[in-house]
Design a protein around this nucleic acid. Structure first.
Lengths: 121, 121
DNA sequence: CTTTTATGATTACGAGTGTAGTCAAATGGT
DNA sequence: ACCATTTGACTACACTCGTAATCATAAAAG
């Protein structure tokens, strides 16, 4: 079960959006959201390769990083883990909590309704 | 923003269910689910007091531990944080992911429907 | 009263994380 | 041909976490 830390997740997001970048391109993609040096980005990339979340492909002098862990798989697993830990595995209490904290917009509620309509089919 | 680790959360759960216990009672309450020594439990309790999630109240030679951080507040915040980090703040994609991974039972779907009905009012 | 036990305080220690520095090889500009 | 830059490999270091051990003290038990 590959565990991905908060900082590592930011790297994964970049590569899920645009797979097969070099280290400096990843760094650049994060320039606005994260104030990391290129070394930090490279450390995180290496750790993700070690963990098996990324693979590398030689491209001349550098590597291209490609996602081995797929976004949907990871997010589904993470959501499940979170709900198990926090809400004993039930999704409804989670939504109820969000609603309480005004964490649900009208748009969210509309989206959820639509989704439930499809799920019932 | 009080951060609570996985092991610490188990302690909080015990005290949310039954506030104001002594260290050995917390240890006992966890005996079945966690294979921790009483020292480990006491370390976790101390850390939670340091973080401000618990307060202590002298009871003779020992402390009674009481929750300062309320369950609903914490869970609402944790849910919000998780969804922000993972799903850019939208709840619907989270539910969609759970559905994909067959993480939603029919009961869950029924619960959600009921909840949405109430939210729309 | 003395020995055991429960309790809180303090300390420990390895793994994981955030954040980077150093080093060496390869490449590109001049 | 040489120097600056890029890149990956290796190393660093403080902080959190999981998991506990040690120590001092107070209380309970004999």
């Amino acid at each position: 079960m590959i565990q991905i830390s908060k900082a590592e997740l930011e790297i994964m997001k970049v590569l899920w959006a645009n797979d097969g970048l070099g280290a400096s391109e990843v760094h650049e993609a994060l320039a606005e959201s994260q104030d990391w040096t290129s070394r930090t980005v490279k450390t995180l990339l290496s750790r993700l390769v070690d963990k098996g979340a990324l693979t590398t492909e030689q491209d001349g002098r550098r590597y291209l990083y490609k996602t081995a862990l797929k976004e949907g798989d990871y997010k589904t697993r993470a959501a499940r883990q979170f709900i198990d830990r926090m809400f004993s595995g039930r999704a409804a209490p989670l939504i109820a909590h969000l609603a309480d904290g005004r964490g649900l917009t009208d748009d969210d509620i509309a989206d959820l309704e639509k989704l439930l309509g499809e799920l019932k089919k």
